[in-house]
């Protein structure tokens, strides 16, 4: 397979396969979760559900002082790479072209040098996260194989994308192909791993907040 054939394959059929697995997997899992339902709460509500739910979704994004003191690294680095991913995925102009093609909507991009800097910060944050995870005995104990797979699957698109943009390592077609392939791997792994937290974490937070709200407790 030449580099051109490889690029044609990852831009063509492979991308559709990856998107199909991603969408079908995510939708199945979400419906499964929502359709399971909860037992009706027959107790008399002591407060609203909606507002406390929404408030919790946002409040839990802010670490409480105690948690921050205990694990500042996890929080700072975690924030850095999550925001970095958000910016590089959504505001790099070639990516916007992709979203425009698939979803039919587009938004203004950020200057490329800025996205480039953000990508570098994210890559280093993710590397630091791995070091932190391996050095901290508790984190290491809590981590299993899946955690490392998910870490690698998230880092690879960043690194290959950086190399592709800077036209490093391999001829551009190969490097761009590897970048797209790494994203496809991420998409395929998505529904079956902890990456699902992208969809479930906010739902879980809302549920917690709403449950506490009903009981009249601040969460």
């Amino acid at each position: 397979m030449t580099s051109v054939e490889f690029l044609a394959w990852v831009r063509g059929p492979m991308f559709q396969i990856a998107v199909a697995i991603f969408v079908v997997g995510v939708v199945i899992r979400l419906i499964e979760i929502f359709a399971l339902g909860r037992k009706a709460d027959l107790s008399e509500p002591r407060g609203g559900e909606t507002m406390p739910g929404i408030v919790t979704v946002f409040r839990r994004s802010i670490p409480d002082p105690g948690t921050f003191k205990r694990s500042p690294f996890t929080i700072v680095l975690g924030y850095l790479f999550h925001i970095g991913l958000f910016i590089t995925i959504l505001f790099f102009v070639p990516h916007i072209e992709l979203f425009h093609d698939v979803l039919g909507v587009q938004w203004p991009g950020l200057p490329t040098p800025l996205v480039d800097a953000v990508a570098i910060i994210s890559i280093f944050a993710m590397l630091a996260i791995l070091v932190n995870r391996l050095r901290n005995p508790v984190l290491r104990f809590l981590s299993n194989g899946e955690d490392y797979v998910v870490w690698a699957a998230t880092l690879l698109p960043l690194v290959t994308g950086y190399f592709a943009f800077h036209r490093m390592l391999f001829p551009y077609q190969t490097m761009l192909g590897l970048h797209i392939l790494s994203v496809e791997i991420l998409l395929i792994l998505f529904p079956f791993t902890k990456l699902m937290h992208f969809f479930t974490s906010f739902v879980a937070r809302w549920y917690n907040g709403a449950a506490f709200g009903r009981r009249g407790v601040q969460s």
Binding site: G12, F15, Q16, V19, V26, I28, L30, L98, D101, L176
Partner: peptide
């Protein structure tokens, strides 16, 4: 160049449909 060569929107729509059916069955 960053746009896939095939119709991803169609894959997405069919994917959601298939996922919904399979999800309902799983549920």
């Amino acid at each position: 160049l960053s746009i896939p060569t095939e119709d991803t929107t169609r894959t997405l729509v069919y994917g959601v449909g298939t996922g919904a059916v399979l999800g309902a069955a799983a549920a």
